[in-house]
Amino acid sequence: MTSLLHRVKSKMAIFAHRKARGMLDGEYGSVFRGRSLDFDDLRAYVAGDEVRDIDWKATARHGSPLIRRYVAVRRQTVILVTDTGRNMAAVSRSGETKKDIAIMALGVTGYLAHRHGDVVGLVSGDAAATHTIPAKSGEAHLERLLRHVDGHTSLDSAASRLEDQLDHVARTVKGRNLLFVVADEVPASPAMGQVLRRLRAQHEILWLTIRDAELATAGGGQPGAGYFSVADSTVLPPGLASDASVAAAYADAAASRDHARRAMLRQAGVTEGTVDSSQDVITALFTLLERHRRAG
C-alpha cells in the first residue's frame, strides 16, 4: 500500500507548480498565527503573507519583498475532526468516494501544519464510537491518522453522527486549538448549531464540506443504475429522479438545505469551504484559508 501521505504530497507538488510555490504555506502561516516577538530570519514574500509582516527596510535593501519570520511562541495544535461513518463511504458529487476526498483534505491540512511545525491530532468516529488520536508531530504520525480514517470508513461502518465528534471535542479538548472539520452536507440542526457556537468560543474552526452526490437532475444526466441509500440500502430508481417536477422540487430543497447549513455555520462564526472532488481539494483549501484570513 502506497503511503497516503505520499499521495497528498505529490498532489501538493503539482499544485505548487501550477500556482506560486509556497503560497499555501503563506496562507496557512497567516491564518494560524503563532508568532512571538523573537525574530528568526527573513524569507521571500509569497502571495498570501500578511502585508504587515513585510520587513520594509530589508525589502528596500534587497529589491524584492521579504518577510520577517519569528520563532513560534508555542506549538499550535491542529485537531482534525472528521466523520468515519457510513455516509463518508458514499459517493461525492464528482463520483469519487467521499472518504478519499476527506483523506486528501485532511492530509493537505495536516502536512501544512506539519511543515509549519504544528502538532496534529484526530477526532473521528461514527454514531457508535468516537476515536481520539492525540496530537503529535511527524510525518509518520500524520500517515497514521490518515490510515485510521481510511481504515474505519466503509459501508459496514455505523451510521454517521458528526454531532457526537464535535461534542466529544467540546467535552475533552482543553485550550485554544485549530479545528479542521471535514464533513459532508450535514443538515442544519439546532443541536449542531449550539455545539458549534460552544466550540467557536474556544477554538478557531475551519469547515470543509464535501458535496454529496446530486440525486436528481432535470435532464436525467445521472447514469442508469442510480443510487442506493447508505443509511438503509433502499434503492432510488433512476427513472424517478429524472422526472421534471421531482428534479425541480429537489433543486429547491437542495438550495434551501445548503442555505440553512451556511446560515448555521455563519451564525456560529465558522468559515466554510466546499469541495467536489479530490482534484479541487487544494484550490478549495486555499479559498477556505483565504476566506478565513479575511474574516478573521
Binding site: 459517493v91 424517478l240 422540487a249
Partner: peptide, 26 residues
C-alpha cells in the same frame, strides 16, 4: 446491482412529496 452507487443523505430526495408521489406511481 454493482453499478448502483452508495449515496448519503438520501432524505434530501426521498422526503420530497413530489418524489413520494412519483414513487407511488412507480
Amino acid at each position: 446491482d454493482a453499478r448502483r452507487r452508495p449515496a448519503a443523505h438520501t432524505e434530501r430526495l426521498t422526503m420530497l412529496p413530489e418524489y413520494q408521489a412519483a414513487l407511488r406511481r412507480h
